[in-house]
C-alpha cells in the first residue's frame, strides 16, 4: 500500500519535471495529464475521493482539453520546437533553476519540524464537503461564482477577434 503511494508520488514529481522540460507543447500537456492523474490517486489515498474525482473530471478533463484546443489553434511547428531548444540551454535555466532549488530547500527545511505524523482518520466524503460548502462557506461560493463570471466575461472579451468588430 505504501509502495503504491510512493509510486504515485514519484510519478507526480517526474511528470511535473517532464512538463517543464518538454520542447513540444502537446507532449507537455500529456505529461501534465499524467501528473494530474497520479495526483488524483494520491488524493484518494488521502481519503479525499470527492476531490480526486473533481481533479480528474475538471482538471485533467476540462482544463487540459482547453490547453489542447489552444495548442491546436496556435498551430506550432518545427521552428518552434527548435526555438524552444534554443531557449532551454543551460545558460537560460541555470539561474532560475538554482533559485527554485533554494526555495525548495528552504521550504523543506521549514516543514521538517512538523514531522511526527498522525494517522489520518476516516475519509471525508462528498456529503461532508457539501454541507461545509453550502453552510459555513456559502459566501465563498458566491465569491467564486463572481470570479468565474468575471473570468468568463474577460476571456470572451479578450478572445474575440477584434478585427471583425472594428
Amino acid at each position: 500500500m505504501h509502495a503504491l503511494a510512493l509510486l504515485a508520488a514519484s510519478v507526480t514529481v517526474i511528470g511535473a519535471i517532464m512538463v517543464i522540460t518538454r520542447k513540444v507543447a502537446v507532449h507537455a500537456v500529456l505529461y501534465l495529464v499524467v501528473t494530474l492523474l497520479a495526483l488524483a490517486a494520491l488524493l484518494v489515498m488521502l481519503g479525499a475521493s470527492f476531490a480526486a474525482m473533481l481533479e480528474i473530471i475538471i482538471y485533467a478533463g476540462a482544463i487540459m482539453v482547453l490547453f489542447v484546443f489552444v495548442i491546436m489553434m496556435l498551430n506550432l511547428g518545427q521552428p518552434d520546437s527548435a526555438r524552444e531548444k534554443e531557449w532551454l540551454r543551460p545558460r537560460a535555466w541555470l539561474g532560475p533553476g538554482i533559485l527554485a532549488a533554494i526555495v525548495c530547500a528552504e521550504l523543506l527545511y521549514c516543514i521538517s519540524p512538523l514531522s511526527g505524523s498522525m494517522p489520518s482518520l476516516a475519509s471525508i466524503t462528498a456529503h461532508d464537503v457539501g454541507l461545509s460548502l453550502f453552510g459555513r462557506y456559502v459566501l465563498m461560493v458566491e465569491l467564486a461564482s463572481f470570479l468565474l463570471l468575471a473570468g468568463l466575461v474577460s476571456a470572451f472579451h479578450i478572445g474575440r477577434n477584434r478585427m471583425e468588430n472594428r
Binding site: 500500500m1 503511494a5 488521502l46 489520518s120
Partner: peptide, 16 residues
C-alpha cells in the same frame, strides 16, 4: 489507514 502522512504530503507539495 495511514497510507500517506501529512508530512509526506507536505514534502511532495513542496517539491511539486
Amino acid at each position: 489507514m495511514p497510507v500517506f502522512s501529512f508530512n509526506d504530503t507536505l514534502l511532495l507539495a513542496t517539491i511539486l
